[in-house]
Every structure is written in structure tokens, then in C-alpha cells.
């Protein structure tokens, strides 16, 4: 009898524990607006924990290894087919959620998740070039800024060590399409990069400060990050290479082995609300893909040249894909050659 009582009270305790609702989000570092999370917690009573990662590969490896305890992950579009084919994501059907009507139709039937059965848009942006216009006043809408740099900028260039993006930019500079296996173009790419590297100063992440303080004058960078640089130094400008630039989108997905599935789905629905999507953007300074979020955005974002793509360059943006394994091996070899 006593045993039965203990068992019952233990069960009751466990049930009580499960009722304290929680949600574990696994997202890129310095990417989630704390105000957004506070608002979600206040509205739903769910306790949110955020863990950071620094690359798609890190996130994929950690979740694949299991035992992570996360409910939500925010991979880039090029990785989402991998996540889906590896069976890591839950088909949470955002397309049937209450707020789905707010998603910009442009972002609904996307190649990586047709009809949005798994993912919800988080933010999207571009990878292009950054130039300090105090030191160079020529055309900045070209990859020549880092592939064949003007004399003024030599020795002050930084290229982000993001293999996929830089390879795609260089391939398009030589007239190819990203993920090409065409040796002729790849040879030009390799030789071109190796030659160009002599004019570079670094291949480093996290150089917001160095651009703001003019230790670096030009390079390859993301639009939102360049936006944050310009807020600190008005000479910093963002260029969209006319040979082709990279467009990407990070999307919110629920993990197949999530423990808090309902809470995770609530979060997916929550961020499709225009006011909440605007909160995401106002922090990391990228566009969000939710219609009607504009009125809630900070004023400086509506006209920012880093966010509003010039009309004549709109069709030059290319979504880069996860390249097939054999092509990926070639790219790794070229990348190693470049940094040897």
C-alpha cells in the first residue's frame, strides 16, 4: 500500500514536471532577438532556452550524433534537403498553420521545401562585397573587388572563410554556375583565387569592428553584417556583384526527435506573425520574408541599400545549393590549395 502511494505521488510529480512547458532552440550565434523570446515566453508561458552554433556543419553533426535535447533548429536553405533526407526533421506542416497566410508567396514554393511542409522563413540575405568608399570610389557592384582588386584596395581585403559562398561567387565571376563540376571553369577559379589571394590581408569572420575602424577596407561579406558596419562607419558600402551574388535563407524547423513538439509548432506559428517577424529583423538586420512586417520594422531598414536590392541587379542573385559529394570534394581540394 505504501509502495503504491509512493508510485502514485512519483507519477504526479512527473506529470507536474512535464506541465512546466519548455522549448529548446538551437540557432546561429548573435542571431535571435531577446525581445522576441521574451514576448513568446510572456504570451505562452513556455520557458525558452537558446543554444548557439557557428556553422551549418556543426549543427548537422551535433544533431546527427543524437542526445542533444533540442526542439528547433535554423539551418540554411542549402542544408535543408540534407536535414530532410537524413530524416532529422519533423513534418510539422507549417503550411496548415494559422499564420501561414502571412508568408510572402515568393517564399512558399521553394526548391528546398516545396509548399513548406517542414520549415518557416526566419531571415534571408545575400553574400556580396563590402567596400569602404573613402578609399575606393569606383564601381562596387562586381566580384572584381576581391577577385581582381583595384590598386587602392590591395592589402586591405578580407574574405570570409565561408567555402560555399566564396566558391559560388568565384565560379560566377568566371561565368559558371555554382556546384559546377566543369574542370575548365574550376581551373580558372583555382588559379584566379590563388592569384587574388596575394592582394588579400585576411580570411576571417567577425570583423565588424575592423571594418568600422578602417583596419579593413574591402572584401566579401553578408548584407546584414555590412549594414551593422555602416551604422558604425558611414563610408562602408555593400555591393551586389553583377556577375552573380549568393542569396540564402535560414528557416525554422522542428527536429524529428524533439521532446516539446507542440511548443515548437507554436513557435513556428508565432514567428509568422508580422509583428514578431519584424522583431527578428530589427535585431540581426536581415529581411524576413513575412508580408506585412514592414510597418513594424525600424525606419532605417526600409530604405537600407543592404536590404533593398537595386532593380537592375535583382535577377543576378543565385540560391546556392548543397553540392553533390564528389563536387564538394573538388571544392575542398581547391579551398585547401588556396590556403596552403
Amino acid at each position: 500500500m505504501k509502495h503504491a502511494l509512493t508510485a502514485v505521488s512519483a507519477l504526479a510529480l512527473m506529470a507536474g514536471g512535464a506541465m512546466a512547458k519548455e522549448l529548446n532552440i538551437y540557432n546561429w550565434g548573435n542571431y535571435t532577438n531577446p525581445e522576441l523570446i521574451e514576448k513568446f515566453e510572456a504570451e505562452t508561458g513556455i520557458d525558452v532556452t537558446i543554444t548557439d552554433y557557428d556553422s551549418n556543419d556543426t549543427a548537422l553533426a551535433k544533431v546527427k550524433a543524437g542526445g542533444h535535447g533540442f526542439d528547433i533548429v535554423v539551418p540554411s536553405h542549402s542544408y535543408i534537403p540534407i536535414w530532410i533526407s537524413e530524416g532529422l526533421l519533423l513534418e510539422s506542416r507549417p503550411d496548415q498553420m494559422e499564420n501561414f497566410g502571412n508568408v510572402d508567396p515568393v517564399w512558399v514554393d521553394v526548391a528546398w521545401d516545396p509548399g513548406r511542409h517542414y520549415t518557416v522563413p526566419w531571415q534571408w540575405g545575400t553574400t556580396g562585397v563590402v567596400v569602404n568608399t573613402k578609399y575606393y570610389d569606383g564601381d562596387i557592384n562586381t566580384s572584381a573587388i576581391f577577385m581582381d582588386p583595384p590598386e587602392e584596395l590591395k592589402g586591405k581585403i578580407n574574405v570570409v572563410p565561408e567555402m560555399g559562398d566564396v566558391m559560388a561567387l568565384a565560379i560566377m565571376y568566371y561565368g559558371g554556375t555554382p556546384c559546377t563540376g566543369d574542370r575548365e571553369i574550376l581551373k580558372k577559379v583555382r588559379d584566379g583565387l590563388v592569384e587574388a589571394k596575394k592582394s588579400w590581408l585576411g580570411m576571417d569572420y567577425g570583423n565588424l569592428e575592423k571594418f568600422a575602424k578602417e583596419d579593413l577596407w574591402a572584401g566579401v561579406n553578408w548584407n546584414g553584417s555590412t549594414f551593422r558596419m555602416r551604422l558604425q562607419n558611414e563610408n562602408v558600402a555593400y555591393g551586389y556583384p553583377k556577375e552573380g551574388y549568393v542569396v540564402w535563407m535560414d528557416s525554422v524547423a522542428v527536429l524529428a526527435d524533439a521532446r516539446n513538439v507542440e511548443e515548437a509548432k507554436m513557435f513556428q506559428n508565432f514567428i509568422m506573425e508580422p509583428e514578431n517577424a519584424a522583431l527578428i529583423s530589427s535585431f540581426a538586420r536581415y529581411a524576413n520574408g513575412i508580408l506585412g512586417s514592414d510597418p513594424y520594422m525600424p525606419d532605417d531598414m526600409k530604405t537600407a541599400p543592404e536590404i533593398v536590392i537595386p532593380a537592375e541587379l535583382k535577377d543576378k542573385g543565385v540560391f546556392n545549393q548543397a553540392c553533390p559529394p564528389d563536387v564538394q570534394q573538388l571544392y575542398t581540394r581547391i579551398w585547401t590549395d588556396l590556403q596552403k
Binding site: T58, K197, L201, D204, T332, W335
Partner: peptide
């Protein structure tokens, strides 16, 4: 070497990291 050297030239440690990360080998 990565932070002060600007990461332009790989060190052996970075080469190993590359294989486990973006290199997928």
C-alpha cells in the same frame, strides 16, 4: 594563428577542422 594571422593561411589544426566541417571528409 587564426585570430592574429587572419586565417589566410591554414595551420595544421585548421586543416583538420576543415575536413570535419565544410570538407566532409
Amino acid at each position: 594563428p587564426r585570430v592574429l594571422g587572419g586565417g589566410k593561411n591554414l595551420m595544421f589544426g585548421n586543416l583538420i577542422e576543415l575536413q570535419f566541417g565544410a570538407g566532409r571528409n
